Simulated assay, not measured.
Amino acid sequence: MSQHTNQSPYPQGGPHPADSYQDGQYGRPPQAPQPHHGRPARNGLGTAALILGVIGALSGVIPLLFWLAGILGLIALILGLSGRGRAKRGEATNKGVALTGAILGLVALILSVVGAVITFTAVDSALKEVDKALSGQEATTPGAKPDAKGDGKGDSKGDGAGKAGAKALAGGATAEYADKLKVTVGAPTAYTPSEYAIGHTKGNKAYKVKVTIENTGGEKFDSALSQVDARSGAEGTAAEQIYDGETTGADFTGSILPGKKATAVYAFDAPAAAKNLTVEVTPGFLDFKSSHWELKL
Rank of each mutant, 00 (worst) to 15 (best):
T140E: 15
L109T: 01
V265H: 08
E138A: 13
D179R: 09
P63T: 13
T212M: 04
A164M: 07
V185F: 04
D131A: 08
K180G: 06
P9M: 05
G150R: 00
I198Q: 05
K163F: 11
V107N: 10
A170L: 13
S135P: 05
G284A: 14
A87I: 07
G44R: 15
E214G: 03
P63F: 15
K260I: 11
Q7I: 00
P29S: 05
Y207W: 03
V281Q: 07
T100M: 13
L277I: 14
Y196P: 00
I75E: 03
W67M: 10
P33D: 02
P33I: 04
G143E: 06
A273N: 13
A270P: 03
T189D: 08
L81W: 02
V114C: 03
A49S: 15
G38T: 10
R89M: 11
P258R: 13
L72D: 00
K208P: 02
R86C: 04
T5N: 11
I103Q: 11
L99N: 08
P142R: 05
T278R: 12
G259K: 01
A178D: 14
K163H: 08
V130F: 10
L45Q: 13
P35V: 03
K95V: 12
D131Y: 06
V185G: 03
N215F: 07
P283R: 09
Q12S: 07
L297M: 08
Y177I: 11
T247Q: 07
G27I: 02
G218S: 09
F288L: 14
L65M: 15
E176P: 05
N43L: 14
A173G: 15
A76Q: 03
W293A: 07
A98I: 11
G171R: 04
E240V: 05
N215I: 05
P146A: 10
L181V: 12
R86K: 10
A144T: 08
W293I: 12
D244F: 02
G172E: 06
K289H: 11
H200A: 00
K210A: 06
E195I: 03
K182N: 12
T121V: 07
G254Y: 02
A166L: 15
G217R: 09
V211G: 12
P188T: 10
V107D: 06
A224G: 01
A116W: 00
L77H: 01
V185K: 03
Q12A: 10
V209E: 00
A197Y: 01
K220R: 12
L79T: 01
A197W: 01
D159F: 02
